[in-house]
Amino acid sequence: MVPRVIFGQGSFDQLGEILLPKRRNSDAPFIFLVDDFFENREFAQRIPLMFNDELIFVSAEEEPKTEQVDILVSRIKERYEEQPSGIVGIGGGTLLDLAKAVAILLNNNGLAQEYQGWDLVSKPSLYHVGIPTISGTGAEVSRTTVLLGPEKKLGINSDYTTYDQVVLDPDLTKTVPKEQWFYTGMDCFIHCIESLNGTYLNAFSESYGEKALELCKDVFLEDIPEDESRDKLMMASWHGGMSIAYSQVGIAHAMSYGLSYLLGIKHGIGNCLVFQHLDEFYPKGVELFQKMLEKHKIDLPKEVCAHLTQNDFDILVNVALGMEALWENALGKEWKKIMTPERLQAIYQKI
C-alpha cells in the first residue's frame, strides 16, 4: 500500500514541503516527469524546482512503452553523476506508470522488459511521488506499472512499484476534456464491476470496490456540483485501485490489452469498446454503463475491428488470453474451457 497520501483541493502546493526532507543534497536532483499537456501552461510554473532539478515533459498520446522507460533511465544516468533524490510523476495513467517504472530501473539493472511480470524486481525503487491530473486509472495506488513491450503488454507488478507518496488534488483535473474524463472514469467503473464479480473477491477488496462503485454512480448518474464531482471521482479512482490491488480485474481489461498492443488504442476507451459487449458476463454493470453513455451523450467508435485480418485477430486473442490471472478471476479456474479462442474472436468482431 502507498504509505503516505494527502488529499484536498489545492494540496499540490504542499509538494515543495513534502520533497524537501527527501533531498539528499544539492547535487541530487528531483526529476519531474510531466504530461506535455502542461508545457507552456501556468501550472508548470507551480512545480517547486530547486538546485539542478529537471522537468521533463512527456507525451501521453500513446501507451507507455518499455523502450521509453529505458531511454529516460539512460538519459538520467548519463546526465547526473549522482543518483537523483527521487522521481515525481505528474499526469494521467501513462505518466504515473512511466514514473514508477523509471524509479524501479534507476535502482535495478537491465531493461524494463526484463521486469514485466510478477515480483521480478529485487531491489527497492528510487523514492517516487505520484500526482494524478486525471481520475480513474488507479495508477496512483497500484503496485503495477503497465507497459507495452516488444512482445507483450504487461505490468511490472511488485511490492517496490507502489508510490512512496501520493498527492491527490482534485483541482488538477479541471482541464480534462469531457470525453477523456468519461473514458478514464469508466476505467475506474469497470475496475469495480470486474473486481466485485470476480472469483478473487475478498472482504478487503469488496469494501473498497463497493465504495468506488457508489462514488462512480454519484459522478456519472447524478447531477452534482463540479467540484464535488472532481473530489468524488478522485476518491473513486483511489478506492477502485485499492480494490483490484487485493483482487483482480477481468474480461474487459484482458481484451483491452489486446486492442492496445495491436491497434494502439488507449486503455480507457479500449475498456469501453469491449465492455459494451460483455452483458453476458456482467449484465448489471453493462446496463449501468449504457445509462452512463446516454446521460453524457458519448458515442463510442464503431467498426474498430471490421477490417482486421485473421492474423490480426490471432494477435488480439493471444495477447488477451495471456492475461491468465484476469481470466481466472472472471471465470474461475476452468476459464480455458469457457473462453475459447473462437469465442473471444467473436467478441472482438463485434467491436
Rank of each mutant, 00 (worst) to 15 (best):
I269C: 07
F189E: 01
K350G: 07
F281A: 08
D314R: 14
D231F: 08
F51M: 00
L278G: 06
M323S: 14
S195L: 00
K284P: 02
D169E: 08
E54V: 12
K178P: 00
A112Q: 11
R23D: 05
E294H: 10
G241F: 05
F30D: 13
L98H: 10
W118L: 15
V176S: 02
I244Y: 13
E324T: 15
Y208R: 03
N107H: 11
A28N: 15
I269P: 04
K333N: 10
Y282N: 07
F32Q: 12
K284A: 14
P124N: 13
D227L: 03
S142G: 10
N271M: 11
D187I: 08
G155A: 09
H267M: 12
V219A: 00
L126P: 11
P132Y: 04
G136Q: 05
G270Y: 04
T173H: 04
V249Y: 03
G240S: 02
W181F: 12
G16E: 06
D169T: 10
E328N: 02
P3T: 08
H191G: 00
Q290N: 13
L96Q: 12
L259W: 05
Q248M: 10
S195T: 15
E324S: 13
L148Y: 03
P124Y: 11
V317N: 07
D279N: 14
G110F: 09
G241D: 03
G117L: 10
W335I: 08
Q45I: 02
H253E: 00
D36F: 01
V317D: 04
N318W: 01
L308I: 08
V286D: 09
P341A: 06
S243I: 05
